[in-house]
Design a protein around this nucleic acid. Sequence first.
DNA 1: TCAATTTCGTTCAATTTCGTTCATAAATGA
DNA 2: TCATTTATGAACGAAATTGAACGAAATTGA
Lengths: 260, 260
Amino acid sequence: MKTVMHSEARRARLAAHLRLTEFASLGELVREAGTSVSTLRRDLLALESSGLIKRTHGGARLAVPRAEEFTFNRLSTANVREKEAIAAECAKLVGTRQSLILDSGSTVHQVAVFLERKQPQIFTNSLPVANLFSSSTHVEVLLSGGTVYPRLGVLVGPLAERAFSEIHADIAIMGGSGICEDGIFNSHALLIGIQRAMLAAAGKIIFCLDHTKFGRKSMSRLCGLEEIHMVVTDRATPPAQIEMLRDAGVEVVIAGEEAP
Amino acid sequence: MKTVMHSEARRARLAAHLRLTEFASLGELVREAGTSVSTLRRDLLALESSGLIKRTHGGARLAVPRAEEFTFNRLSTANVREKEAIAAECAKLVGTRQSLILDSGSTVHQVAVFLERKQPQIFTNSLPVANLFSSSTHVEVLLSGGTVYPRLGVLVGPLAERAFSEIHADIAIMGGSGICEDGIFNSHALLIGIQRAMLAAAGKIIFCLDHTKFGRKSMSRLCGLEEIHMVVTDRATPPAQIEMLRDAGVEVVIAGEEAP
DNA sequence: TCAATTTCGTTCAATTTCGTTCATAAATGA
DNA sequence: TCATTTATGAACGAAATTGAACGAAATTGA
């Protein structure tokens, strides 16, 4: 798989990534391009002189910002660092051209950012995710219908729920607001029905939950631990909690733990 | 399979590979063609002089990148003035708290911009329209499901079609690419089915069509003039065309005619 | 404000790729 | 059959790309 990518292809890929994310850090772009920092800098220079992007300290951003869309603002989301690590790790679990169900929520949205190269087929009720790929030809996005929930850009209601009850996907990548030995919880009661339909429609269920979600319950219980297959979290999660999950038969992946 | 391929066949194969991958490195192309680097270079030279591809350092890329079929941003900037006038006029036809079906397309998108104060309930298959009301609590947006059509951000497919067949709205605000005495036409065959469902679901049907659309037919016929109730257009539309519409029983509103 | 860290831009050596030339093999036509 | 044309593969110097190093500039945190 040691294919050397050449400048044209690399730059196209970088441009695509930036169109997707609006802004990207150096490290992110280095990972995306698979080259050294020097080369990446030269690429960014070229893309900048072509007017496509603007370079910034520590990264680059799209020259012409995308139209106002539902999109998760980096600054407005908490624990960006951890969520990015979790997202990158979770994306590694996805194979090429698999069909995925993507939950709404900021962590899962982050996962989507890393998914383009996997050329997945995505089912989602998240407008931000749909917007992310609206200009990508490599990713097929099927949006459930539903009423747009203001500010979050999540599609809710019976239309959304029914859409998921009529499909099947290889993997569901989910989020939640709390996890403990009693199961997984979510704070939006409106979403519970939809999430249950998502769980029922997927062959494999992965939850992305940062350490702040552990040991917490919130309003509505979504499902028990026995219904899920895998949890991706960060290093700050207490070992006892991880032990508890593994005892319950849940596979746990910890982002940022080196294992070459 | 170790047949000596003739240059023609080889080049066709290379072209096909590039059409598929957009970019390809030398090594990749050598594998594809099964020749030495020298011969491959000569092939690429020939393909380049035929205008099909562009050679790059380390490989080659397609001369005309695919998937850039139509970016209606540029096309629409030409008639922005007219479209805005039409949109403003069309928005005046909408009452407070009515339920609306909004077609995809740039003109109808413009109408949506003027609709917020009417506090409408909107059914649409247009991602840009949904995004427009991202922070508005006055507008309720119900998005049809469907596959996201790249670049345009339109939801298409059976899910979208079915969504509209199950609802009813006071008014449908529609767009098209051509209108003449035979009816209304649209260039995207994918959308025809959805638009028909929209028409069937609305009590009143308004088409927004600037003067460039008159007297034109395009690929697919959407409906006859007897099925629609109103057309909003601009002052540059020939009077004969307007007369024709009125004779057919269609109410015509001309944007920018009244003195305020 | 100052110190520590990160990022930037430049230079330089190493590698890869390009274009040209040359020799050989196959195909064509007399 | 032989000469001529065409296609192919290899070789080699020139040019471009790449990755690392290092001092300068900017950012961050106290």
